[in-house]
Design a protein around this nucleic acid. Structure first.
Length: 571
RNA sequence: GGGCCGUUAGCUCAGUAGGUAGAGCAUCUGGCUUUUAACCAGAGGGUCGCAGGUUCGAGCCCUGCACGGCUCACCA
């Protein structure tokens, strides 16, 4: 206290005091360095120890409260609570009563509400806010998606109920009984007559207004993010809470299933662990099966298994599940990601383009509710779809008139090298022509592809599983769909000629020998399947995470994956 | 892997030229029976990411490390 007063008077300590402080700090350092630091117990399986033993005043207070609640005769962690409604259901059913109104209106509403549901509403949730006023109190209960205000008076809940309420902390779970009413300020609320303790929050809640901003905390402890973002008051208009993002993600997957089920596709599951990592170009995760004593790979794509099913007579199949690629992380790459893949007999890539447009428009309508979807600082127009060949796209977006290559030049080695030089793109000389065109495309075109754009006519070298165009075998019948500068879908008329397929695999193996680690691996059993005959088939994959990013306006793939991969916590 | 930025109370954030670390929420004590980022009066709470260094003295300057973010590269 005295220190504080002095502080306001003496703006700068005297030289003597400064010297003394410096010396005492020096002494402390000496002593500190002689005591060996106890190594905190590291547990690499569970990360850092939970902080429950820390002497944080708030944690101690909460433990004390729990003990007191138990000593009052309540169960610490009761087994169930029977609700008449979820909070969201109450809001949905009765929100129309809310809003500021005059005395007479308010009375009329409250007379009606008092007897609604027989005057006995039972809801449960987490305490998000608390406002105590002597012998009455308000609080908000959350079911994770919505909040309902509750109102308690000592008279109504009795001595024991009131005493219990005093021992509750933000974050605790309770169940309450009561009747609905509208407050003076117009908020739909529950007038509590009975209260039951359901579970304790021993750790303090994040800031009730700002929520959690620390990205690391949000990704590592998603549960905290979910709690905090459902309560945060500072969301921008249209911005979704974390919970809402994942509700929408679930909706996307639900609607995709409905879309394909309704059209007669069969949902199948193919191996996630397989002896060969093939069907895409990527580095796999390896694991080991002890009983069989073989290495297994987490799949990088389900593609070849799904086409085996077409060869086996399924006409339409789809699968939604995880793929694993042992590569770098970025805002659009997570080591495991969710892929939709489907295959349909008697079909080709043109038909798939139409179907894709139909599917994605349906999802946009259901999830976004508008075809003008805001994404970051731009707007994606889902009424404006383009189809461009890869070469036409390069020519279209070529930055400079004088160096623009010709259509045929984009298939000529020398011209390709000139073109790459003109845009300052240094290409590995080991690349083949098709790979070079691909690199140029990425550099020149991708940054422009905001609205949905199908890029067609891929070089054959880039597409070992696609069927060539009859009129020009240098290219295959393939497209990729780009939205918001991201590859969202990849599809082609499936190569079903086993002899040609073997030749393509062999070409890939040669690339591999030349050091291209991502070249595709030969799959003999797949060739055998094709040798029994596969009908003409169209197949496609859609990256669900990226699609959800766009539909929920999220900047990073980590914002649409509940538990994204992070370096383990340490220390 | 390169570059830039960040790491301060449970949470959100300030922090002066290097001179005893601050605010709001949360917590504690008291008051308040329709409040709502409740309010009023008071109080407690920090190894300033970690480890070194420079200095009489470091949250601040230097070096290294850890974790994270953005970005480029690699990579579909």
């Amino acid at each position: 206290m005295e220190e504080r007063v002095r502080n306001t008077i003496i703006s700068e300590p005297s030289l003597f005091i400064r010297l003394f402080r410096g010396f005492s700090r020096f002494l402390r350092r000496i002593f500190a360095s002689t005591t060996t630091k106890t190594d905190s117990t590291k547990n690499f399986l569970t990360g850092v120890p939970v902080l429950l033993d820390q002497d944080n005043d708030q944690i101690l207070q909460r433990k004390r409260h729990l003990a007191e609640i138990v000593s009052m005769g309540h169960q610490a962690y009761p087994n169930r609570f029977d609700r008449t409604h979820t909070i969201s259901r109450i809001i949905e059913q009765y929100h129309s009563y809310a809003g500021k109104k005059d005395e007479a209106d308010l009375q009329r509403s409250n007379v009606e509400l008092k007897v609604a549901e027989g005057g006995q509403v039972r809801v449960a949730g987490r305490i998000m806010t608390r406002r105590l006023m002597g012998k009455a109190a308000f609080a908000h209960l959350s079911d994770g998606l919505n909040q309902l205000q509750i109102y308690l008076r000592k008279n109504d809940v009795g001595e024991s109920g009131w005493e219990l309420y005093q021992k509750l902390d933000l974050g605790d779970w309770i169940g309450v009984t009561g009747f609905l009413f509208i407050t003076k300020t117009g908020e739909l609320s529950l007038h509590v007559t009975g209260i039951q303790f359901l579970a304790k929050a021993l750790l303090p809640m994040p800031d009730k207004y700002h929520g959690v901003h620390d990205k690391e905390l949000r990704y590592r402890q998603r549960y905290v993010d979910l709690i905090a973002s459902s309560a945060a008051q500072e969301l921008l208009p249209g911005e979704l809470t974390t919970r809402e993002v994942f509700e929408k993600r679930a909706q996307v997957i639900r609607e995709i299933r409905r879309f394909f089920d309704d059209r007669g596709y069969v949902e199948v599951e193919t191996p996630m662990l397989s002896p060969l990592a093939t069907g895409a170009a990527a580095r796999p995760f390896v694991t080991h099966h002890y009983a069989l004593d073989i290495d297994l790979y987490a799949r990088i794509a389900p593609e070849l298994y799904l086409k085996r099913l077409i060869a086996g007579g399924f006409e339409k199949v789809y699968e939604i599940n995880r793929n694993f690629r042992n590569e770098g992380l970025s805002y659009k790459h997570n080591p495991e990601f969710t892929m939709l893949e489907w295959y349909q007999a008697y079909s080709d890539y043109i038909e798939l383009m139409d179907l894709t447009e139909e599917l994605i428009k349906m999802l946009v309508d259901k999830v976004s509710g508008t075809r003008q979807v805001p994404y970051l600082d731009q707007t994606i127009d889902f009424n404006n779809w383009q189809r461009l060949t890869m070469r036409d796209a390069v020519l279209k977006y070529w930055p400079e008139e004088t160096t623009r290559p010709t259509l045929e030049g984009l298939m000529d080695r020398k011209r390709l090298e000139e073109a790459a030089a003109a845009i300052d793109l240094s290409c590995d000389p080991k690349l083949n022509d098709g790979q070079m065109l691909g690199e140029i495309f990425e550099r020149i075109v991708e940054p422009h592809l905001i609205n949905p754009t199908f890029i067609t006519e891929f070089p054959t070298e880039l597409s070992p599983l696609s069927k060539q165009k009859h009129e020009d075998p240098r290219f295959v019948e393939r497209f990729e769909l780009f939205i918001a500068n991201m590859e969202i879908a990849n599809a082609f008329s499936e190569l079903n000629d086993p002899v040609e397929q073997r030749r393509r695999f062999e070409e890939q193996m040669r690339l591999r020998e030349r050091g291209d680690e991502e070249a595709m691996i030969m799959d003999e059993d797949y060739i055998r399947a094709l040798s029994y005959g596969m009908p003409p088939t169209g197949g496609e994959g859609i990256g669900i995470d990226r699609l959800v990013m766009i539909l929920t306006n999220q900047r990073s793939i980590r914002d649409v994956i509940l538990f994204p991969h992070m370096r383990p916590e340490s220390k």
